[in-house]
């Protein structure tokens, strides 16, 4: 049995073997936002924030997430409005098939939390671990650069 905080809510889960945090989020905790794709930390579609750090949840042994604070894409928007990062991606056409989008949103949220006014190079470096097959990244980077420009 593990206890963890997910999006501010105390949760318990019961990983019985070598499951990853990703598997537990999706299959035990009803949070399918983080996506399962490469399972080797290459694609970033499973990105979550754990204890303030951006991580691939597929590479976190669920049992080792005991006692941590996890934030997933489900915890990004508020109850009545989507987050500014999500809004910016929609406005710039930064979402096509959408599979990578949860990971991109979480990585971008983490970037803006640590660096409110990133340069384009910093945006590209911050997203270096998130693969998108559709957009060619241009519209994603433009979306986040526009958001950075709005930061006073």
């Amino acid at each position: 049995m593990i206890r963890l905080s997910v999006n501010g809510v105390a949760r318990t889960a019961d990983p019985t073997g070598a499951e990853s945090l990703l598997t537990v989020l999706r299959e035990q905790l009803g949070l399918p936002g983080a996506k399962n794709a490469c399972e080797q930390g290459e694609c970033g579609s499973c990105t979550v924030i754990m204890d303030g750090e951006l991580v691939c949840s597929c590479l976190v042994l669920a049992a080792d997430a005991d006692g941590t604070e996890v934030r997933t894409v489900e915890g990004v928007a508020s109850a009545d409005a989507i987050d500014a990062v999500q809004e910016a991606l929609l406005d710039a056409g930064g979402v096509q098939c959408g599979f990578c989008t949860p990971g991109i949103v979480v990585a971008a949220r983490h970037l803006f939390a640590t660096k409110p006014d990133p340069t384009e190079d910093e945006i590209r470096e911050a997203l270096a671990g998130n693969i998108c097959r559709c957009t060619g990244y241009g519209s994603i980077v433009r979306a986040l650069a526009a958001l950075a420009a709005e930061t006073p």
Partner: peptide
């Protein structure tokens, strides 16, 4: 430790250690 090597073996190569010390 960080899991970036070990968990790849767990996920893709079926590694199932009997006991893990994290």
């Amino acid at each position: 430790a960080g899991g970036t090597d070990l968990m790849v073996q767990v996920n893709l190569q079926g590694l199932r250690p009997a006991r893990v010390i994290a």
